[in-house]
Every structure is written in structure tokens, then in C-alpha cells.
Amino acid sequence: MKKFLKQYFSIINYSIMGIVFGYAFFYLFINMYHYQDIRRVYNTTVKDEMLVKKVDSRLKLIENNINSFDVNKYHGQLDASRLNLVSANLKTCIKYYNNSTYNDLKKKKSISIIDVYNLREAYENEVLNGCIVKNLYWVSAIEKTDFTSLKSNAVLLSYYFKDILATTNYLKKDLLNNTSYSFSTEIFSKEIKNASKEGFYEVMNAYNSSLNIVEYISNWLKDEAEAGVLND
């Protein structure tokens, strides 16, 4: 009986050790796999990317629009000092768009998940908070101003602002979730979504679409400036 119990416990014990061994083995290797998986980079020359070129050319266009306004030459119907303020707001915006993270990324030839995260953070902190909220959000409350041509689009603009402020929220959650992982990581990365590649395009698309409003206001400023100079 004693021998039987001893053998019985021995079997149970080796079963427990087997389970622990298997689980630890699985855990260790899935961790190693995940360690490697999140280091996957997207190889591309960033400055040659279509979206980057597009954003850069639009920034140049906006800069030219801003430079077309000269407060000393303006003699239009609107208050010149207020237009000058708009011009200053747009100039500040350009600085925020040309932030150091974006400029550093343009020098790179491969994009890691950290680059995407930093670019998204720069988009939120510099572009959305610095440019859109601090310098341009007043456009969505245009009823209080005398800028009539902007006023007609105020409601649409306010929707647009709300939209671009929430564009990359999902991406942020997605990126921060890369601590968790599952069996589907390999298939997910290859077939559905590669976080480094797709994340980069998502943020650059957000950069590009947020430029619509800056470009729209800069075009309006340019038109006003030209009309003001003609009136003179």
C-alpha cells in the first residue's frame, strides 16, 4: 500500500512538473517571439514618401500665402491688426508642424514602432494642442468675429475640428497595447496590420488632413490681402 501511494504521488508530482515545464517553456518562447516581433521596422526613405512630400509642399504653400499679407500695404475692409494676428497664428502653426520629431524622422531610412509613437505624440502635442487648439480653434467660434467669409463655414469648421482632434486616438490605444500579445501576432502583422508601417501612414494622413484647415485659412488670408491691396 505504501509503495502504491508513493508511486501514485510520484506520478502526480511528475505531471505537475510537466505542466510547469510546458507552461514555462511556452511563456519564455512567446516572450522571446514578442521581443523580436515588436522590433520589426518598416524600411523606407521617409523624405521620399509621397505623403511626406505632400505635407512639405503644402507647408511651403501656406508659408507663401502668409508672406503675401503685409500689414502695411493692407487697406481693406477688415481690421488690419486682427488680420496680422491671424498671420502670426498661422506662422506659429507652421513652426509647430515643422517640429523636431517630424524633421528628425525625415532623415531616417527605417521606421520603428517608437518612431511612430513619437510622431503621434508630436502630432497631438505640437500640431493639435499647439497649432489647432491654441492658435486656430477660434475659427470654430467665428460668430464673435467680423470675418464674414469664414463665418459662413463656421459650423462645418467646428465639426472638422472635432474630427481631427480625435483622428489618432484609436492609434494611440493600439500602440500602447503592444505590451499585450497573442498567438495571432505573426498573421496579424503580415496580413492585417504592421504597426510600424500602417501607424506611420495613419499619423502622416492625420498630419495631411489637419493641414486642410490651415491651408483654408491661409488661402482666405491671401485672398483678403490681395483684395485689400487692390482696394488701395
Binding site: M17, Y35, L176
Partner: peptide
Amino acid sequence: FYNVTCCLVLCMLIFCGYRAMYDEYMLLYI
């Protein structure tokens, strides 16, 4: 078998600790 299992489990613990402290590619670290 017991010794190998112990080493494996403890290796895993060290590896997890290392990742928690140094793996900046897990973005929660940043």
C-alpha cells in the same frame, strides 16, 4: 527534470523582469 524545470521558470522570471525594466519597444515603458 526538476532542476531543468526550476532553471526554466527562473530564467523566464529574469527575462520578464529584464523586459519590464529595459524593453522600451513596449510603448507603455515610455
